[in-house]
Nucleic acid binder design. Structure first.
Length: 786
DNA sequence: GTCCTGGAAATATAT
DNA sequence: GAATATATTTCCAGG
C-alpha cells in the first residue's frame, strides 16, 4: 500500500514488489518481520519466490520446469561459462587465460568439482586487496564487493525482503568449516576470475591484461586494477587484505557460473532468493527493457554474483556477528586463500574467537533483528517522542575518491567541522547504534546509492569511532549514540567512495546509470527498541552532496533560496545561495506537466551586478497563468551554459488574490520555514532535508497514504525524462503520478500538481517565453532524477 | 609512510 | 564514422 502508486506506473499486471524498486516486499510493517518470505522453505519453491517475493525476477531466474537434483529450481542464465572454466581449474590450471577457453565449451557443467578444486596459484589472480598502491584499506575493500559484502561478513539481520537468507537450511554457515573451506577455495578460484566472457565483457580478460602485457595506463574499466597485481607494481598477495568486505558487487569478481554450480546443490534455493532479493532491492524490474545494452551483455556475471549472496545470507542471523571486518591477520588460517574477495565470502565463518565475531560490548546491534527495514525503505525522521535530526548538514560538495585513490577524507560541514546527528527524545541509558550509508539524491525515493559507498575514516583526526557493516549491497557505517553525549554524534569518520560506473552498471538488476549521477545524501538511521520487543526505526537524510570533482567545480548549485513561493504576478527579488554562480548565469523557471513535458519556461531576470560566486539575485517572473485558483508548483534552475545546469529547485506560485496561508501537512515533519509562509515547507529540497523526511511511515501501518503522496509529490515536481532518453530512470512515469494523485487526497497535492497541468494552455505572460521545444540537452533529461 | 587534497592528464562516453 | 564536447577515472605532487 505504501507504494501503490508504483503499480500504476509500471504495469498493472505485475506485483507491486516487482514494479517498484523501493518495494522490497509486498507490504511491511516496520514493527514486524516479514513472515511471508522468511518462512519460505530453505529448499526453495519456485512458486514461492515468484508468487510471494517477486514474480517478475523470479521468472527470470527460474526457468519453468528447470530443477536441480535437490529439487531446487535451476538457474540457467549464468551457468554456461562456468562449467568449462571449472574443468580447467579442476585440471589444476589456475591461470586466467584459461578463461578464454571456457567459452568454447558452453554446455559443460561440473559443479561438484568446484568445491574440491585445488587452490591454484593465487598470485595469478587479481587480488582485490591490491587495487592500487594508493588505495586505502577501506577503499580496497570495496574493490570486489560484489560478493564480499554479501558474504560471511554481512550482517545477519535483514529486512523482510532478505529474510529468506535467514533460513537455516540455506545457510552455508551450518557446514563445517572443513567442508566449507574447500568449497570456498573453489569458489574463490572461480570467482577470482575477473571475467568469464571475454567476448561480451568490455573488460579485458585476465589473459589480456595479465599475460599479454600491461594495458594502457588508464584502463576504462574494471580491468585495470588487476594489472597492478599482475604486473609487479603491486603484489598480488597483499599482506594487508581488505579489512572490510566491499558492499558493491563488482562484476569483475562476480561469482561465476562455476561458483554457482559448485554450490548449487546446497545453495540453490538460497541463491535464488538472494537473487530475487537483489533484484527487488536494487530497483527496478529488469527484464531487459530499460537496461543499457552493455549491462545486458554481462548478465551472466551478475546472475552469478547474486548467487554468491547466498553465502552470506545463509548465515545464521542469530549467531553471526555484526562485525563486517575480516582481517587475515586475525584469522591466519585463511590468509593463504585470501586472493580474492570471493574467497572470503565462501569461507565458513570460523568458530574461533575473532575480533569481528565478538559481540559488541554495548550490543546496540542487538536491535538489528531480521525485521529491521531494508535500506531502501522510507522511514520517518521522527515518531512519538523520538526524532533523529541532522544538526549540522554536510557540505554540498565532497569529492569522492575512487578505489584507485587514497581517501579524500571525511565529509565536512559547510561551516567547518563535520556533520552532526542527534537523536532527540531518547531518555534511556542504553546506547544505540546510528547507521550511516550513502543514499541517492535524485527525485525518486531515497535508496542506497549504487555508485557510492560510505568510506570509514580512521585516524588521529577522527574522534568518532565507527564500525563497518554490509547490508544488502550497501556498506553501512555504524556509530554509537551514547546517552552521555546526548545521543549526539559528530560524523567525522565518514568519507565517500566512488565505484566505477562500469562496474556497477554491469550488475544484474542495476538499472541506474552512473554517468552524471553524482549526487548523494548521507542517510542516518537508528533503531530504538520498544517495549514488547519491537523496534522503532527512524531515518533522516542530509542535503544533497555533489561528489564529482568536475561537477563541483563547474555546475552551479543552489543551496538556499530566500523565497519558496510568491504570487503569480512575480516581480519579487529572490536571493539564491549556492556555488558557481556567474554573471552570465541564467535562471530558468519551468512548469512541467505530469508527464514531464515542459508546459512553460521562462528566463528570470538576474541582477548581474549583485551576482557573486555564492549568491545570485533573481526576479521572480510572472507566471503564465495569472488566474490560478490554487498554488502551482514549478521549478527553476540556474544555468551556466550548455549542460551546466543546477538541479531543479522548487518554487510555488500563489493565486494573485490568495492569502498565503495554506494548510500543510505535518509541519513538524519539516524544519521551520526559512522564508515564506507555510507554503515553503517541504518545498525546497536543498534548503531543507525535505527528501529525507518526505515519507512518514510511523509504526502504525496506517500511514501508507502519506508515502503515496510523497512519491507523487516528487514526481509531479520534477520533469520526467523522456522514455527514449532515459529508460532506466523512467520508471517514474506520469502514469504513476496520475495514479497516486487521487488516492492520496493529500492537501499537498494541490501544490504539486501544476494547475491545469495540461500543456495545451500556453498563456504566456508578458515576458518572453522559452519555447517548450527549446533545445534541452538530452543529457539533461536523462539526469532529471538527480 | 600514510592520509588528504587539488589539479589535471588520460580515457571513456555522448553529441 | 569522425570530430567535438563532456564526463569519468587515474595519476601526480605537495602539504
Amino acid at each position: 500500500e505504501h507504494y501503490s502508486y508504483a503499480s500504476s506506473g509500471i504495469s498493472s499486471g505485475l506485483p507491486l514488489s516487482t514494479a517498484h524498486p523501493a518495494l522490497p516486499a509486498p507490504c511491511h510493517d516496520l514493527q514486524t518481520s516479514n513472515p511471508v518470505i522468511s518462512v519460505l522453505p530453505s529448499t526453495g519453491h519456485p512458486s514461492g519466490y515468484g508468487g510471494t517475493v517477486d514474480s517478475g525476477p523470479a521468472g527470470y531466474f527460474l526457468p519453468s520446469g528447470g530443477t536441480r537434483p535437490n529439487g531446487a529450481p535451476a538457474l540457467e542464465s549464468p551457468r554456461i561459462e562456468i562449467t568449462s572454466y571449472l574443468g580447467l581449474h579442476h585440471g589444476s590450471n589456475p591461470f586466467f587465460h584459461d578463461v578464454e577457453v571456457e567459452d568454447t565449451v558452453p554446455g559443460a557443467r561440473r559443479a561438484p568439482s568446484t568445491a574440491t578444486l585445488p587452490l591454484p596459484g593465487l598470485e595469478a589472480y587479481r587480488d582485490p586487496t591490491c587495487l592500487s598502491p594508493a588505495s586505502s584499506l577501506s577503499s580496497r575493500s570495496c574493490n570486489s564487493e560484489a560478493s564480499s559484502y554479501e558474504s560471511n561478513y554481512s550482517y545477519p539481520y535483514a529486512s523482510p525482503q532478505t529474510s529468506p537468507w535467514q533460513s537455516p537450511c540455506v545457510s552455508p554457515k551450518t557446514t563445517d568449516p572443513e567442508d566449507g573451506f574447500p568449497r570456498g577455495l573453489g569458489a574463490c578460484n572461480l570467482l577470482a576470475s575477473p571475467r568469464h566472457s571475454p567476448s561480451t565483457s568490455p573488460r579485458a580478460s585476465v589473459t589480456e591484461e595479465s599475460w599479454l602485457g600491461p594495458r594502457g595506463s588508464r584502463p576504462s574499466s574494471p580491468c585495470n586494477k588487476r594489472k597492478y597485481g599482475l604486473n609487479g607494481r603491486q603484489p598480488s598477495c597483499s599482506p594487508h587484505p581488505s579489512p572490510t568486505p566491499s558492499p558493491q558487487g563488482s562484476p569483475r569478481v562476480s561469482v561465476t557460473d562455476d561458483t554457482w554450480l559448485g554450490n548449487s546443490t546446497q545453495y540453490t534455493s538460497s541463491a535464488i532468493v538472494a537473487a530475487i532479493n537483489a533484484l527487488s532491492t536494487d530497483s527496478s524490474l529488469d527484464l531487459g527493457d530499460g537496461v543499457p545494452v552493455k549491462a545486458r551483455k554481462t548478465t551472466l556475471e551478475h546472475t552469478a554474483a547474486m548467487a554468491l549472496k547466498v553465502e552470506p545470507a545463509s548465515e545464521d542471523p542469530g549467531t553471526t556477528p555484526p562485525a563486517a571486518t575480516f582481517s587475515p591477520e586475525e584469522f591466519p588460517a585463511f590468509q593463504h586463500i585470501r586472493k580474492g574477495a570471493f574467497c572470503d565470502q565462501y569461507l565458513s565463518v570460523p568458530q574461533a574467537p575473532c575480533p569481528w565475531v565478538k559481540p559488541k560490548p554495548l550490543s546496540p546491534a542487538s536491535y538489528m533483528s531480521p525485521s529491521l527495514p531494508a535500506l531502501d525503505w522510507q522511514l520517518p525522521p521522527h515518531s512519538g517522542p523520538y526524532e533523529l535530526r541532522i544538526e549540522v548538514q554536510p557540505k554540498s560538495h565532497h569529492r569522492a575518491h575512487y578505489e584507485t585513490e587514497g581517501s579524500r577524507g571525511a565529509v565536512k560541514a559547510s561551516a567547518g567541522g563535520h556533520p552532526i546527528v542527534q537523536l532527540h527524545g531518547y531518555l534511556e541509558n542504553e546506547p544505540l547504534t546510528l547507521q550511516l550509508f550513502i543514499g541517492t539524491a535524485d527525485d525518486r525515493l531515497l535508496r542506497p546509492h549504487a555508485f557510492y559507498q560510505v568510506h570509514r575514516i580512521t585516524g588521529k583526526t577522527v574522534s568518532t569511532t565507527s564500525h563497518e557493516a554490509i547490508l544488502s549491497n550497501t556498506k553501512v557505517l555504524e556509530i554509537l549514540l551514547l546517552p552521555e553525549n546526548n545521543m549526539r554524534a559528530i560524523i567525522d569518520c565518514a568519507g565517500i567512495l566512488k565505484l566505477r560506473n562500469s562496474d556497477i552498471e554491469l550488475r544484474k538488476g542495476e538499472t541506474d546509470i552512473g554517468r552524471k549521477n553524482t549526487r548523494v545524501r548521507l542517510v542516518f538511521r537508528v533503531h530504538i527498541p520498544q517495549p514488547g520487543g519491537r523496534t522503532l526505526s527512524l531515518q533522516v537524510a542530509s542535503n544533497p552532496i555533489e561528489c564529482s570533482q568536475r561537477s563541483a567545480q563547474e555546475l552551479p548549485l543552489v543551496e538556499k533560496q530566500s523565497t519558496d513561493s510568491y504570487l503569480v504576478v512575480g516581480g519579487k527579488k529572490m536571493v539564491l545561495s549556492g556555488h558557481n554562480f556567474l554573471q552570465d548565469s541564467k535562471v530558468i523557471f519551468v512548469e512541467k506537466a505530469p508527464d514531464g513535458h515542459h508546459v512553460w519556461e521562462m528566463e528570470a531576470k538576474t541582477d548581474r551586478e549583485m551576482c557573486k560566486p555564492n549568491s545570485l539575485v533573481v526576479e521572480i517572473p510572472p507566471f503564465r497563468n495569472q488566474r490560478i485558483t490554487s498554488p502551482v508548483q514549478v521549478n527553476f534552475y540556474v544555468c551556466n551554459g550548455k549542460r551546466k545546469r543546477s538541479q531543479y529547485q522548487h518554487f510555488t506560485y500563489l493565486p494573485a488574490n490568495a492569502v498565503p496561508i495554506i494548510k500543510t501537512e505535518p509541519t513538524d515533519d519539516y524544519e521551520p520555514a526559512q522564508t515564506c509562509g507555510p507554503m515553503t515547507q517541504g518545498l525546497s529540497p536543498l534548503s531543507k532535508p525535505y527528501y529525507s523526511q518526505q515519507l512518514l511511515l510511523p509504526p502504525d501501518p496506517g500511514a501508507c497514504l502519506v508515502a503515496g503522496f510523497t512519491s507523487c509529490q516528487q514526481r509531479s515536481t520534477v520533469m520526467s525524462p523522456p522514455p527514449s532518453t532515459s529508460p532506466k530512470l523512467h520508471d517514474l512515469s506520469s502514469a504513476t503520478y496520475t495514479k497516486c494523485s487521487p488516492s492520496t487526497g493529500h492537501s499537498h497535492l494541490g501544490l504539486q500538481q501544476p494547475a491545469g497541468g495540461a500543456p495545451t494552455t500556453q498563456e504566456v505572460p508578458r515576458s518572453r517565453a522559452v519555447p517548450s521545444s527549446a533545445p534541452h540537452p538530452s543529457s539533461h533529461a536523462t539526469l532529471q532524477p538527480q
